[in-house]
Design a protein around this nucleic acid. Structure first.
Lengths: 164, 164
DNA sequence: TACTTAACCCAGCAAAATAGTCAACTTTAA
DNA sequence: TTAAAGTTGACTATTTTGCTGGGTTAAGTA
C-alpha cells in the first residue's frame, strides 16, 4: 500500500463524484474545475478507475461518470489500489530463499504494517467521509454562529456600559 | 502524510537499527548489507533522521548509529515525516479564500483522512513492531514444526501401510 | 604521529513516477 | 447526420527516487 499524491487525487475525485452524481452523471471537466486537477490527468485516473469497476462512464452529450456502486460500498483502499501500480516491494520476489537470513526480517515487518494500513483504509468508505464532512461543516457553522452570538453579546455589553 | 518507498526504506532501516543496536552502534554498511539498500542512499536518509533527532551518529572506529531514544518512544509517523519532504498539498495554500467554494470541500475531506492515517501511524512504535515480529516468527516456526510433525506422521503411516 | 574507520557532506546522474498535452476515435442527443 | 461530449492512447516535461563517487572530519588504534 502506497499513499502518494496520485492516490489522493483519485480519492478526491471520487469524493467529488459521490458528492455530485446523485442525480446525473458528472463530467471530468466539472471535477477538473472544482478540484483543480488537470482534465487529462483525471482522464488517466478514471481510465483506471473504470477498468477497476469503481466508476461507470456514460458517453455522449449529457454523459459523464457515476459511481459504479453506492458510496457506502466503495472504500478508500480500493480506490488507491486502482490507480497505484502494485509494486511488489519485495527484493527477494517473495521467494523463500532469504527466509532464514536477516534480509527478510524487517521486510516482513514492513509488509505487516502495510497490511494494517490497507485494512484500515478498507474500513473507510466514501459515504463515511462525506458524512463526517457534513458533521464537520455543521459543527463549524455552529461554532461560527456561537461566535457571532458572543460577539453580539459583547457588543451590547459595550453599548450598555457606555450608556450608563 | 505520504507513504512511499522512501519512507519504507527509512522504517526498515530504523527497525534494523532497533533490532541490532542494543549493545553497540550499528554502521550503515551493516544495514546496507542486511537490508540491501545502497549505502549512499542510507546516508541521505540517516542525515535527515539525525537532524530530526531520531538517531545519534557516532564517528570513528567502532562508531555507527544508535537510536536517539528507546524503541517504544519512536513512532512510525515521525520516521516517515523525517525523511519525506512535507508537501503542503493545499492548492489554496491554506487560505480562507476558497472556504465557501466547492474546491475545498473534498480537499478538507482528504486532509481529515490524512490526519487519521497520521494519528494511526503515530500510535505504532518500533518496539511494537519488533514485538509483533517476534510473535510472528515464533508462530511461524511453530507452524513449521507442526507441519513437520504431520509430515513425519504421514510418512510413518505410509511406511506402516507398506509393511502390512 | 600516522593510519584506519567510520560518520558526514556534496554534486551529479539515471531511472522511475508524476502531471500534463495532443490528437484521434466513439457514442449519442438534438 | 452532425456536433457535442466522452473515451482512448501515444507522447512529453517535470519531479522524485535511488544511487554513484568524490571528498572532509572526528575518533579510535598501532
Amino acid at each position: 500500500m502506497r499513499l502518494t499524491t496520485k492516490g489522493r487525487y483519485a480519492v478526491t475525485a471520487m469524493l467529488d463524484l459521490a458528492f455530485h452524481s446523485d442525480t446525473k452523471p458528472v463530467t471530468l471537466t466539472d471535477i477538473a474545475a472544482r478540484q483543480t486537477i488537470s482534465l487529462s490527468y483525471l482522464e488517466q485516473l478514471f481510465s483506471r478507475l473504470r477498468r477497476a469497476n469503481m466508476v461507470k462512464g456514460i458517453r455522449g452529450p449529457g454523459g459523464g461518470y457515476t459511481l459504479a456502486d453506492t458510496a457506502d460500498k466503495i472504500n478508500i483502499a480500493d480506490i488507491i489500489a486502482a490507480v497505484d501500480e502494485p509494486i511488489d516491494a519485495t527484493k527477494c520476489g517473495g521467494e523463500a530463499n532469504c527466509q532464514k537470513e536477516q534480509a527478510c526480517l524487517t521486510h516482513d515487518l514492513w509488509m505487516g504494517l502495510s497490511d494494517q494500513i490497507r485494512a484500515y483504509l478498507k474500513d473507510i468508505t466514501l459515504a463515511q467521509l462525506l458524512e463526517k464532512h457534513h458533521v464537520q461543516t455543521v459543527a463549524k457553522r455552529q461554532d461560527q454562529d456561537a461566535e457571532q452570538v458572543i460577539e453580539i453579546h459583547r457588543h451590547t455589553e459595550l453599548l450598555s456600559s457606555l450608556s450608563e
